[in-house]
């Protein structure tokens, strides 16, 4: 287990290095004078321009600048937002909990709805239930999240008045945005659970379980479910990145605080230190989550660990 963890960490390190280079490069790839571009949205005075120029020290060799960027980032110094004048790390710390809350709720909805739909479809393949759930799944995959979000607001806030449409705080304000992201992924999970379940149900040990007289419920829940879930765990890991991307859009639709909204505002305002900070933290978070998913995957399915250890 420890060896496997070491191997995965060794693979993640170059990626982390690459991410830091990309984030560092954002400012340097800007066309024209980066300082002027960075301040173009802010109506800056010449003093501010001079101040930023002194702060960023673009005249230093690029390697020196990168080393400085890395040294500061390692101690959590991601610069100062051009607009709010607050340290970027504080801005991020303010927004991150809201996004994590949204992501966790979305995953819960995706897994719960996806599992039920997928299992129902697999137990009666080619029945109307199967077709219906796969039709719902196709709709979920083809539905842009901003459109689904508006539909949910229209139905549950404006027409029925059951839930608040926007804002922060309490589970009632969490349901609609979490459902917007979660239902899309429920569709993906459902399709996968269905195919993985059908595959598992065809195995000899399922036949054995049935032959020894187990009730169908026990066969499904005890013998099939666990094995069918293995690919589901991976896909949830793979999908986490898209889930993060989903929060970018959904937070805007529901006017919720969070990293996604922060990223969009930063890009619209051309607040480059803030863009760099948000992108760096999001990408590193994604790398970390993938690492955790891989490790948990190897705990659920020990074959992976051994295959990895042999390679």
């Amino acid at each position: 287990m420890f060896v496997y963890l070491q191997q995965r960490l060794a693979l993640a390190l170059p990626v982390v290095f690459g991410v830091s280079v990309v984030v560092f490069a954002i400012v340097h790839l800007l066309p024209g004078d980066p300082v002027l571009v960075m301040l173009s949205g802010a109506n800056a005075t010449p003093e501010q321009v001079a101040e930023l120029r002194a702060q960023l020290r673009f005249e230093d060799p690029i390697a020196v600048q990168y080393a400085r960027f890395l040294r500061r980032a390692l101690v959590g110094d991601l610069g100062v937002s051009i607009f709010s004048k607050r340290p970027v790390i504080e801005e991020i710390a303010d927004q991150l909990p809201s996004t994590l809350e949204l992501a966790a709720a979305a995953i819960a909805i995706a897994v719960a709805v996806g599992l039920v739909l997928g299992i129902l479809a697999a137990l009666r393949p080619n029945s109307w239930l199967d077709r219906l759930s796969m039709l719902v799944a196709l709709g979920g995959i083809s539905m842009p999240s901003f459109w689904l979000g508006l539909l949910l607001i229209f139905a549950f806030s404006l027409e029925l008045g059951w839930l608040p449409a926007t804002g922060q705080g309490g589970w009632r304000r969490l349901i609609l945005p979490a459902a917007t992201i979660g239902l899309g992924y429920a569709a993906v999970v459902a399709r996968l659970v269905r195919s993985s379940f059908l595959e598992v149900l065809g195995n000899a040990y399922i036949g054995t379980a049935r032959a020894k007289g187990l009730a169908e419920r026990a066969v499904v829940l005890k013998h099939a479910l666990g094995n069918a879930l293995i690919p589901v765990v991976t896909i949830i890991g793979v999908q986490l990145g898209n889930l993060l991307a989903g929060t970018i859009i959904v937070e805007t639709v529901f006017s919720r605080r969070g990293m996604g909204r922060l990223a969009v505002t930063a890009v619209l305002d051309k607040d480059y230190p803030l863009i760099q900070g948000v992108v760096l933290v999001s990408a590193l978070g994604y790398v970390l989550v993938n690492l955790l998913v891989d490790v948990s995957y190897s705990i659920i399915d020990p074959r992976i660990r051994h295959r990895g250890g042999a390679a």
């Binding site: 991410v19 280079v21 991307a245 859009i249 930063a266 890009v267 990408a283 994604y286």
Partner: peptide, 17 residues
């Protein structure tokens, strides 16, 4: 691998930035 570390919308956001 590095490009994959950015979820697609985030990577697109970086390019637009």
């Amino acid at each position: 691998d590095v490009m994959m570390a950015f979820p697609s919308v985030l990577l697109a956001l970086v390019v637009v930035a």
